[in-house]
Design a protein around this nucleic acid. Structure first.
Lengths: 221, 221
DNA sequence: ACTTATTTTTAGGCTTGTCTAAAAATAAAT
DNA sequence: ATTTATTTTTAGACAAGCCTAAAAATAAGT
């Protein structure tokens, strides 16, 4: 049984995970910045996480998560992203608003809760920001996501997210039934302004500007 | 703006609320028992809650929540019961399992989250245990709930909960479509065994034993 | 009423997670 | 290569929330 970690520990683990995506090794100062705390506090916690085997840590030389640390991080991220999906998809939150609340919900560790939530939501693969949701083993699906503007012609795809958070765009898109889960394909690409013509499963079609097509992330089927 | 309280403070407030339903004034020992902690710890926290105006407290004489303390308690209980409803109604948890998880979810204070959850669930008035859910002002609806066994003949009512948690009973009931929200009325009461004959809106009818009718809580319409 | 038992509070200590200030290690600069 | 600047760690302190042990207040028993 993997032990339970405190909320503070989980936040450190998650931050380290994100920072180590950007560089080989994470520094004390970078983590202090990210967590809005002081370097001395970071060192304290690093020692604890290292003692618990979650961290590869050489004093003064930087650190990364161990294999176990990574596993823990991915389960936290799984919870975070599933809750974000829930908030947007079921509770009608806007994309900008969900992060803060998901930061709290992610610390509820009940595996049963998370797996049932996952099933309830239909096993979503991407959160509303388009970031992939790890499965219950912490694996991230290899499946790629790309902007609608790059989708090959006549390739069926499903909308996984919209990057741009401007509520004007959001309400426009939802008025056209362009929401997470919508299936469509690109029928034409107009070279003079890079606008695209899309077609829904129900045969309806619509033209979108390059900017809008860039903001919409899709998942080829 | 009412301040935010720590998880520990919220748990104290909630426990005091429940204990003061049972007796005029709450004692240090009773609360220590309820929270599975020691009397000395209780006294410490009582001083804090009293300083924050949440408690009417006379040292050595017992305590109760102040008006403000009561308001806070009811909002915590609202969150707890809404999440319980969500877990059972949406995520298919069994009634026995939900309490523990709801104990964690109840501490997420976002008002927006709670009110949206409430709307999403259809503004339920009772949680799966049959306890009333306070509204967003902390008011508990006066509406009465009673066991199906006591429902007057030909009185329309809606099922709000099932008290008995035996899973055999639960699966029997759900196989007969007797779930939270089901509408029915009692057509006949058989005096020799106190069994009752119920009728659904769709005219189907069914006979239930006294024990089963006792376990089903309903809300007259 | 006065002793005994119970309850509650105080006193002091421990852990977690934070902080500031100072010391030590590493990196940069002349 | 040696001084200077930066980064990281150590040392010591503090708040929240818990604990045990002892003291004080209240309640019960004769």
């Amino acid at each position: 049984m993997s032990p339970n970690y405190s909320v503070a520990e989980e936040n450190y683990i998650k931050s380290i995970y994100h920072l180590q995506q950007l560089s080989e090794s994470v520094s004390t100062n970078a983590l202090a910045d990210h967590l809005k705390s002081r370097p001395a506090s970071i060192t304290d916690m690093l020692k604890k996480l290292h003692a618990k085997g979650l961290l590869n840590y050489n004093p003064y030389k930087g650190f990364r998560l161990s294999r176990e640390g990574n596993k823990v991080a991915l389960l936290i991220i799984r919870r975070h992203r599933l809750w974000e999906f829930f908030l947007v998809d079921q509770l009608q939150f806007n994309w900008e608003e969900v992060h803060e609340v998901a930061e709290e919900l992610e610390h509820i560790r009940s595996k049963k809760l998370v797996d049932k939530l996952d099933a309830f939501l239909g096993f979503p693969k991407f959160d509303p920001h388009g970031d992939p949701i790890p499965d219950n083993n912490g694996k991230i699906s290899a499946q790629q996501q790309l902007p609608l503007s790059n989708l090959p012609l006549n390739q069926q795809a499903v909308i996984t997210s919209v990057q741009n958070q401007a509520s004007e765009l959001l309400s426009f898109l939802s008025s056209q039934n362009i929401i997470i889960g919508t299936r469509l394909e690109v029928k034409r690409r107009l070279s003079f302004d890079n606008s695209i013509e899309i077609k829904f499963k129900n045969k309806q079609s619509l033209t979108l500007s390059e900017q809008v097509a860039n903001a919409i992330q899709v998942n080829p089927l």
